[in-house]
Design a binder for these strands. Sequence first.
DNA 1: TAATAGTTTGCAGTGAGTGCAAGTTTGTTT
DNA 2: AAACAAACTTGCACTCACTGCAAACTATTA
Lengths: 207, 207
Amino acid sequence: MTQAEGGLRARKKRETRAALAEAALRLALEKGPDNVTVEEIAEAADVSVRTFFNYFPHKEHAILGRNPEHIERALDRMREAPAEESPLTTMRFIVHDVLRDLEGEGELSRRGELIMASPHLLYQLMLSSFEDERQLTEALAERMGEPATSVRPALIVSASGAACRVAMERHKADPDRPIRELVDEGFQLLAEGIDPGFRVVPTKGHP
Amino acid sequence: MTQAEGGLRARKKRETRAALAEAALRLALEKGPDNVTVEEIAEAADVSVRTFFNYFPHKEHAILGRNPEHIERALDRMREAPAEESPLTTMRFIVHDVLRDLEGEGELSRRGELIMASPHLLYQLMLSSFEDERQLTEALAERMGEPATSVRPALIVSASGAACRVAMERHKADPDRPIRELVDEGFQLLAEGIDPGFRVVPTKGHP
DNA sequence: TAATAGTTTGCAGTGAGTGCAAGTTTGTTT
DNA sequence: AAACAAACTTGCACTCACTGCAAACTATTA
């Protein structure tokens, strides 16, 4: 296999990808995500339209420019979590970690609003977070020593995602409440039980 | 205003819509959702392609054929819930109600699998369920007498959605476990608290 | 430097989705 | 019943996303 990643070829690929993602985000912010064409993005990155599609399957994917490092770090964090740390606690760390990154890039609000404003972006984000959730669930189930078909690990991951989304929405509606505070409130509720009054009427088994 | 809903015109519209949705689902099941064109659907329903788009904004929307009654019934159930019924209990009823409908139409598995198998369908489903969640959250917040910006009602609704999704996934992975059982397990966990061991490290307040 | 393998690009084509204007059907008014 | 208005359908022309293919190009390796 050619020289792994230091070569001119590999570097150029990284650069092209970065240029495309950058152009996509910039243009989307400038003109609104639905008013950008692939043609413009390609032009701005100085490649052909066809090349754009060699790098990204959809326009949205480029705008979103998901950083593969995020999920990687999240998985690492999950696997290396101290044995005595409870699952939801780990999930909370992961969420805060991602938030820190986004804030660091100064992109939390910019990209966040962009996403919230465009159904198509939301779509891609959801799809990728589905995949993320799947991987995280797998890692968590293993860590908890539960079978992969168990409900609890999956629900812990998925509900954490729900808490995130709720926090983002509420933060958008009321920007004075810091998002981390909202996230923590959500996790606290999930941990303690979201509804102490819950009662299932005598369940009638399967039909 | 013309005669409200008994007229020929209104009936024809309903019929056309139904014919399109029916054709869309049938063809999607036959050929796989990605191999159906709008042209085929329109042809099968005996209208022009242009007319198809007068009824549905996307192909996926037609295949999904979301029944507006579902969310309406859910909202009614939410508003009319007895005062002493806890929020999550109400959500559970709503979910079971929808499940019953789907089973009744014999569509739970057919349409469910179709959706799970196609990213684009999942996309539309998520988008519409976002809207549903928003409405349900609003109704729940009012019922709980909480401000609309409160985290708990939103999280209850959103986490219930998570429980549903988890149940569907697990059911798909292991069809022997009835979906209702999986749903109930999820709700039980949410109610009790998903993670008794959760501890936030001495929280550092807002940055 | 010649062979090789990875990349870019143009081209041709399918299909989604939209706006417009003309034609048709249904409902209302007189 | 005739005339009018409103709603619905349709064809047409158009933009844009996205794909497969084959030719041209370029970094890498022998």
